[in-house]
């Protein structure tokens, strides 16, 4: 929350890169673990799954990234896709480098509403970050308060799936039904094959007691929503996290504006019933 910056919400707070790891086989995705340098700031830093930060590489610029670690963890984890100037600079970072962070920004997945409900978590590609944080947090802190978790997660190839360590852990957890899928048959792959919306259609859920959370490429989100509605799930119980080009993170710079909402401030998480009233600018 921007309350972390009482004076100037545009000033990044220094963080140290503690660890880096290539996340995907093609090395386009890299995961970084960050720690806040200032002890006082670190003590007060608090976020909820679903929120994002702006990571700043001085001289290159800043870009928004969803927080992938659970709030329970000491380090902030993000996964970065190498595409532009800033992300290329982030990929060059190594242990010990000092960069800047602003945030956390935005709203979060509504954990409090989920008492006694089933969770249907749906994700594709490298958009899995905040939902991985959410899943991990639910399992750590809310395990006895929610019912079962169905998790559909898809990638182009097995090597493009994020956080294999976590997925392996969850496989052994009776509370989680994992539906991992890849786009096409792949040597050695024993999981599901097919696109996320098709897999979602096949998962059996209780439509009256299930909350759905979708995060993925826009096309996946658009094709998945009708599949959930077909199951009889209310549009008030389907949440999706939108991605927009965001600069300021605090609803000032204007670019993530959709209708009366700013994705950075009022989102990034919206109910489908809210999105219906907005132009399909996502």
């Amino acid at each position: 929350m921007w309350q972390n910056f009482p004076v100037n919400p545009y000033l990044p707070i220094p963080v140290r890169v503690e660890k880096v790891r290539f996340e995907s086989e093609d090395r386009s995705l890299k995961t970084l673990w960050l720690s806040l340098l200032d002890e006082e700031v670190r003590k007060n830093f608090y976020f909820r799954p679903g929120q994002f930060i702006e990571l700043s590489v001085p001289g290159k610029g800043e870009s928004p990234f969803g927080i992938a670690s659970s709030p329970r963890e000491e380090l902030i984890k993000i996964t970065v896709n190498k595409t532009g100037t800033v992300t290329r600079a982030i990929h060059q970072l190594d242990q010990g480098d000092i960069v800047g962070v602003r945030g956390p920004f935005g709203n979060y997945y509504p954990i409090e509403d989920l008492l006694g409900a089933n969770l249907f978590i749906i994700s594709g590609g490298f958009a899995f970050t905040t939902l991985a944080s959410f899943t991990e947090y639910v399992l750590q802190d809310w395990s006895d308060k929610v019912k079962d978790i169905d998790l559909v997660y898809g990638a182009r190839t097995p090597g493009m799936l994020l956080y294999k360590d976590l997925l392996e852990e969850w496989k052994g957890n009776p509370r989680v039904k994992l539906h991992l899928t890849v786009d096409r048959e792949y040597p050695g792959w024993t999981g599901l094959v097919g696109f996320v919306p098709d897999i979602v259609a096949k998962v059996d859920v209780d439509p009256l007691n299930t909350y759905c959370f979708i995060c993925g490429p826009p096309i996946m989100i658009r094709l998945t929503i009708p599949r959930l509605i077909e199951k009889g799930i209310s549009k008030d119980r389907i949440y999706t996290s939108l991605e927009r080009r965001m600069k300021c993170g605090i609803g000032k710079c204007g670019r993530c504006n959709i209708g009366l909402k700013y994705v950075c401030r009022d989102g990034p998480i919206f109910k489908v019933s809210e999105l219906e009233k907005l132009p399909a600018e996502y």
Binding site: Y10, P58, G59, S63, N81, T83, G84, T87, P217, P218, E243, R244, R245, C253, G254, R255, N257, I258, E281, Y282
Partner: peptide
């Protein structure tokens, strides 16, 4: 050294909302 600046931008530009993935919501 360096500085961070802000400049006018415009919703009338294609690049204004173009995302890194190539997706453009507008």
């Amino acid at each position: 050294a360096g500085k961070r600046i802000r400049t006018y931008d415009s919703c009338m530009f294609n690049l204004y909302t173009l995302e890194a993935s190539g997706h453009n919501p507008r």
